[in-house]
């Protein structure tokens, strides 16, 4: 299948597909980071994670409209504001959901799955009632349009680059928060042993709520970034939920580094294969390989060596 292309074309193909893969990788990482906190650290199966993401996307859509109608001069800056709005909205909803639903179900993880699935249905219908069933998109500010030409055959779109840088920053932030800050220590203590963490004076309920809200907030930012690459509909979130869970599980649920590594592997494999096979077959093959590897190595790529 390589015979039809010259070697320089092949390099360009791999570079471009590699870059397309990197964009996909950024989205996967952003989505999976939130889930890695909620599912990997807290053990809560949040099936509504995709809907939190879509909430972020809709918030970005709303913010862009507000900027467009009220202060068109500042339109170039709306995206930064939109991301904060998305983070706060999704985080606030997350805190509410934790208070109303999740905290009653910490000892029944499989039931959380059902309850959050119900939540996702409700959210989907809310989006459909409020924003309509049609997909919405935002127009990008000028400075995010266009592309950078690296060689005459390789061009890199700026919005993709921006999302990538954003991903790196957020990933670094989450890493710092979880592994270097005092608060992250509390989170990990609560996750490892709830009664013991409570006994040493950590307010476990508050830590739980903040952790869940943080995970949801990051999902909101992911949705915000998502609007730069694709359009958003009420059921878009559902399309990504399986991928996201697989990324987290494949990486080794409790490891942030693993999540990033597995997001990289899956997105690169998928986008490179997409060029040579049809999109659906590329996806099937990638998922099959991931499931196959998970059957052989259920703990995922990176696993913490702890006694359970």
């Amino acid at each position: 299948m390589f015979a039809d292309y010259s070697s320089s074309e092949l390099v360009a193909i791999f570079a471009m597909q590699g870059f397309a893969g990197l964009s996909l990788f950024s989205i996967f990482v952003l989505m999976a980071l939130g889930l890695a906190i909620i599912f990997g650290q807290m053990g809560v199966i949040n099936m509504a994670h995709g809907e939190f993401m879509i909430l972020g996307a809709y918030m970005t859509y709303l913010t862009s409209h507000v900027f467009e109608s009220l202060m068109p001069g500042l339109y170039g800056a709306y995206f930064i504001v939109a991301m904060m709005v998305a983070f706060l909205a999704a985080g606030a909803l997350g805190a509410f959901v934790e208070w109303a639903l999740i905290r009653r179900l910490y000892h029944r993880p499989l039931d959380t799955l059902l309850a959050t699935w119900g939540l996702s249905l409700i959210l989907q219908q809310c989006y459909r009632s409020i924003f309509g069933a049609r997909e919405v998109g935002v127009s990008l500010p000028d400075w995010l349009m266009g592309s950078v030409a690296i060689t005459d055959m390789i061009e890199v779109p700026i919005n993709g680059l921006f999302v990538m840088i954003l991903t790196l920053l957020i990933a670094a932030g989450v890493y710092y928060l979880m592994y270097r800050s005092n608060w992250g220590g509390q989170v990990r203590a609560v996750v490892q042993n709830r009664p013991m963490a409570g006994a040493v004076g950590i307010n476990t309920e508050r830590v739980d709520r903040a952790t869940f809200a943080l995970g949801c907030g990051i999902a909101g930012v992911a949705g915000s970034a998502f609007t730069m690459i694709g359009s958003t509909g009420p059921t878009s979130g559902q399309l990504y939920i399986v991928d996201t869970f697989l990324v987290v599980v494949f990486g080794g649920a409790a490891s942030l580094l693993g999540t990033i590594a597995s997001a990289f592997t899956i997105s690169q494999a998928q986008s490179t294969m997409e060029f040579f096979l049809s999109g659906s077959m590329a996806k099937v093959l990638t998922l099959l390989v991931v499931v196959g590897i998970l059957m052989l190595r259920p703990q995922g790529l990176f696993s913490l060596k702890i006694r359970r």
């Binding site: 599980v249 659906s280 499931v291």
Partner: peptide
């Protein structure tokens, strides 16, 4: 391999997704 619970749920869900994509494709 003593994989169960949540992981089993997610893997079976992934297989369902794969099968759907395959049938549609």
């Amino acid at each position: 391999r003593r994989v169960g619970g949540v992981y089993f749920a997610i893997i079976t869900q992934a297989i369902a997704a794969i099968l759907t994509i395959l049938i549609i494709g």
